[in-house]
Amino acid sequence: MGAWVGLNEVTAEGIANKDLIACRQCDALYRDIEPDDEHRAICSRCSATLYAPREGSFLQVFAFALTVLVLIVAALWFPFISISKAGLHHTSSIFDVVLSFSTTEMIPLTLAVAAMILLLPALRVLLTLYVLGPLLADKAPLPHAALAFRISERLRPWAMAEIFVLGVAVALVKIHALAHVSPGPAFWMFIALALIATMQDRAACSLTIWKALENK
């Protein structure tokens, strides 16, 4: 990525609304000019990123999303972690982790945990594929693509796969003294998917996608 450029400050007079954007963080008004792939546009008032387009980023984001989807689905069917102690064994899948709260009056917590570590990451990935697929094929967006992308953006802070991975690490250290622990295939898949989901978010420039959705 090249140097950072700020867009010129403008007075709105005489410029049509569709040629303007306002910084989402501080409301500063700019002419809507998408920088070339070498540059990114940052707000000169609050330094928030406006545009960070990159050559081939749609394809990259699409590929990351597809990988995450495959990993989520696969992680469900493999053992996650097993422990053994005094001849007793216990193996947990991701399902078992999610359902661990359901024994008591904690059903809402079960749903929340299921959403944060599985459902929302999966949903965000599906929405991303739905939005970017047609754009990559140079076709018109699918129906309600704007709604799909909006939901995906709104859900971003609630998809917590990477936080779950930190939780797994902490739990493993805690158990270490108590029993013998061995991570299964789903454990490594989850680490990979948290990493790739983060890379996917970093590669996606939301204003570029909004513009593409509008113009196609």
Binding site: D96, S100, L166, V170, I175
Partner: peptide, 19 residues
């Protein structure tokens, strides 16, 4: 959002330590 980590730790421990 990183505060949620302890909740996940509890979920993992409770699912795993059932001997």
């Amino acid at each position: 959002r990183w505060s949620m980590v302890d909740v996940f730790v509890v979920a993992i421990l409770s699912s795993l330590i059932q001997l």
